[in-house]
Amino acid sequence: MFEARLANGNIFKMIVESIRELVVDVNIDCSTEELSIQCMDSAHVALVSMSLSQSAFDHFRCDRSLSLGLNLPNVSKIFKMMGRDDTMVLKAEDSADKLMLMFENDKSGTIADFELKLMAIEAEQLGVPDTAYKCSISMPSSEFQRIVRDLQVMGDTCKISCTKEGLKFSATGQIGTGNILMRQNVASEKEEDHVTIDMEEPVELNFALRYLNFFTKATPLSPTVILKMSPGLPIVIEYPIEQLGHVKYYLAPKMEE
């Protein structure tokens, strides 16, 4: 029997919204420790890795590890019926062939419950190696979203280079070139406005802006975003969910022909 109760159901809704355009049919893996998702997009260019700890839930029971095969666009439709302040309850029997979702509104006392048929999804588990990245940048997630949106006007590829000058985002296209340089900023009072750049060695990589734009759907989950890069490796873009978990995106670089 799997049963989990999340007082702030909106967190789970935001997680679904942050990945449903990138990965459609996913397994939500339930263990005694956490709910997690690890899934690549159909082109195998991006990987989503989500984790939400059992400590995020007011009640969490998982007798046996389960994989809940779901179509995220369908799950997203059901979450449209959840109120902002609703409590969310997930429930599935061990012989999981369906998932129960319940939304409880404490104020009005209404309870909505939905049943989703589960799918059997062949999951290819990927070995994501632990990497000591050469550059790690923490910045306001809204800033990253704005940069990605603005540079999409200039072209379809973003060059991200981390040097001692700072972190530079560049895009070149028909109409010209755009560069946005961010420097370390730990002066402002608001922690959330800080930009911290840890650079062990300079790194310069190119990425498809279309994917970076998909990733910024996770912006509502976290005021900060963490970018980690090493020469010639996929970038990791991490949106921490307070201390409760994260949504991480890995993106393969575009290589010089």
């Binding site: 690549m40 082109a43 195998h44 260019v45 991006a46 990987l47 290819e124 588990q125 990927l126 070995g127 994501v128 190696p129 590829t157 190119n206 498809a208 490796l233 996929p234 890995y250 393969a252 670089p253 575009k254 290589m255 010089e256 022909e257």
Partner: peptide, 14 residues
């Protein structure tokens, strides 16, 4: 022109 690589080159399938 830059060619898009894919993750299979970086992450081994378990």
């Amino acid at each position: 022109q830059k060619r898009q690589s894919n993750l299979d080159a970086f992450f081994g399938l378990k």
